[in-house]
Amino acid sequence: MSRARGSKALGAFALERLLNAVPLVIGVIVINFLLVSLAPGDPVTALIGEFPAPPEYVERVRAQYGLDRPVPERMVRYLGSVVRGDLGFSFANRQPVLELVLERLGRTLVLMISTVVLATIVGVVLGVWAARRPHSGVDRGATGFALAGYSIPEFWLGQILILVFAVGLGWLPAGGFRSIRADYVGWAAVVDQARHMILPMLALSFRYMAITTRLTRASLLEVMNSDYILASRARGLSERRVLWEHGLRAAALPIITVIGYNFSFIVAGSALVETVFGWPGVGRLMYDSIFTRDYPVLLGILLIVSIAVILVNLLTDVAYALFDPRVRY
């Protein structure tokens, strides 16, 4: 059936959300600036890091950010630099920070997106299963699974998965992004990379499977008691259709929301999991930068990741509006 409202209205809604996001982005930049200004010692250290840098560069940074100027001017200069995309230079990596982070972002996104997909599918299936027979063995099992997911730290789960599947059973590689020794090409390379991704993905998705399971179960139980479900049964719809087309459609809304709003936790989780598995993404970069005291990289990651979270939240709002015709836009 055709939608009553055009894409124009949706565009306007998205634009409005976008405008709403601007102060948040500015807020994030201000927090970054505050971190730089409040850090103990010479603020130039926060901008350059503790990796040895040539003195000319140090002086240039001092001048660029006006470190001898009053705070408001420093803030404006900082904002200006960030908006121009200048996040500083990483001497430990011999690369501009923005370039470095964006380079690593791809692998992190691959991990996060496959995690979200996996967690959503498994969580929804488990949640539906549990909701079909509340208080049954299956339901109890799903509840136990959810509790474990909420409580087990993903980095520890990662270590345990390595212990069992890599060290113990030898089925999967213990870490890395691809096999270094063998030089796979074509499909073999894809399979090789996929094998490296399985364990990190499992470790990272456990918590979100648990969240999705619990949420699916709860919203489905509520929805399936509603009048319109009764009515669709009275129209002769099969239980399967009632569940998938009516029940889950309604349950999808909270699921979309929770995935969107938990994105910043997935970010943290992936940093930890990447560290466990030596997955060369942003998280691993963060871990390494702590040891090299490469502050501009850390600040750059905070900035980019925060903006990514803001964008994901924005997309969540739009997706919600697409899914629920009652949202006015």
């Binding site: 807020g27 971190l35 926060a46 600040l299 990741v305």
Partner: peptide, 23 residues
């Protein structure tokens, strides 16, 4: 509430990491 929203959005772990690394 805007400030609260900001604090909810910023990845807590990353921010905590930096603050602890600095301080």
């Amino acid at each position: 509430m805007r400030i609260t929203e900001l604090f909810q959005i910023i990845p807590r772990f990353v921010l905590a990491l930096i603050v602890v690394a600095f301080f």
